[in-house]
Design a protein around this nucleic acid. Structure first.
Lengths: 225, 225
DNA sequence: CTTGACACAGAACAGGCGTTCGAGTATCAT
DNA sequence: ATGATACTCGAACGCCTGTTCTGTGTCAAG
């Protein structure tokens, strides 16, 4: 009969080690040694650290270069050094609602498509764990200065403060759009990023679903035509 | 009297070591050891490698974590791992020509302002050595889907192929602009990125200076207002 | 010629570090 | 009880690696 794992995937210690490697890497610019991991994760024996490292490698959270000092690196969307890996959740287009990824904090991080961003580019200290990316399909967001093929990085959110750029789903109009958000008395004002264009006014009784705040827009300029 | 260095800054061996560290890092995801450097750079003694590493550290091309295995990392705009550091050359605004940085391949790489991009984001294999970044000032490029505050990454170029997005300086009109470039008989057609806007037609006798090809546009979305 | 800075080689040292092995403990199903 | 599985510990082994010291040859300045 199969054994039932205590906590399905990652144990407390696994996460502690993973977190320590990430923070150590950020601080020292290179991975920790086995002994340093043990020291900071309350593991007294190097063999135990090695034991967990092996498991983390098998589960795909880690890569190891055997025999080489500090030869380990994190995989997945964990901030690695000064890099941030943001999962590509899908596409965003005018006629369809957005798929916000489930909050699977860890677990099956399928490294299918992902976007790598230098942390130095991140506006605020968006911790990163929560970010996700969408690829824009179609020309419907040009009033938000977003083109077909652009990649937008956003942070999940159900509400927004005035001035935030948000991705909203207007079910009454069957429309997904990117706009600057302003709450005014009895209505919402959705202001296009393009200053020459006029805002959309939404009554409070109309449904307005905020899906996330836009943090960044990236456009790879390929040759047109 | 002051000694005159053979080649001013970097010797042949310095560059060889620098190149090796970069390529090794790309391949193995971690820096080489002193002995590995010596082996691939035809240096038989570890002390000599150490000797050059010290110099490279003093000249700022390298950072070292003493006592730590493979504890070195490249600085500057050298591709480090999967990162690319692009120098920020200045601002681009409608009324003024662009400052294209001089081709100082190495030398005084003042790490003043620079933008870090993951190589995985780079469209083609833009080698990177030639790229530079500009910050957009003003709303004059909205027809190119580029907003105030955006960062554009571009590659120096004097000419362009049809379909390239280029930064051009129209001295007759005293205007800098970003457009898709098309050469037609007796004229140039500059097509805005926004498909709802009409192209600018430039006669062949009007002056048109191509400054560079746009490779990427990055927008950090801060809270407006 | 002497001096000294510079580039280089080789060897030895000492500590860092991954690896391995033997052994012990706890929990749980059989 | 019994065995299997998961987890933990401590110690020792041995390679890997940065550091240091001594010595050699070159070359330009004094």
């Amino acid at each position: 009969m199969m054994m039932v794992r205590k906590s399905k995937g990652l144990g407390e210690r696994h996460e502690k080690i993973l977190d320590f490697i990430a923070s150590f890497q950020r601080e020292h610019k290179h991975p920790p040694s086995i002994r340093e991991i043990g020291l900071h994760c309350d593991i007294s024996s190097t063999s135990v650290v090695n034991y967990y490292l092996d498991q983390l490698e098998k589960s795909g959270h880690l890569e190891r270069d055997r025999k080489i000092s500090r030869g380990m690196r994190l995989t997945g969307n964990t901030p690695l050094g000064d890099m941030l890996r943001v999962p590509m959740a899908g596409v965003i287009q005018a006629g369809e609602p957005i798929q916000v990824p489930a909050n699977d904090s860890f677990g099956s991080f399928t490294p299918d498509d992902s976007v790598e961003i230098a942390t130095s580019l991140m506006p605020a200290r968006e911790k990163g764990k929560e970010l996700f990316a969408l690829k824009v399909q179609g020309d419907s967001m040009i009033d938000a200065m977003v083109n077909d093929g652009d990649i937008i990085i956003l942070k999940p959110a159900q509400d927004a403060r005035n001035g935030d750029m948000v991705a909203v789903w207007l079910s009454d109009r069957n429309e997904t759009t990117l706009k600057f958000f302003y709450k005014e008395k009895d209505k919402y004002r959705l202001q296009p990023a393009n200053p020459t264009m006029k805002p959309i006014i939404i009554d409070k009784n109309e449904s307005l679903e905020i899906k996330g705040k836009v943090v960044m827009v990236i456009r790879k300029v390929e040759r047109q035509n």
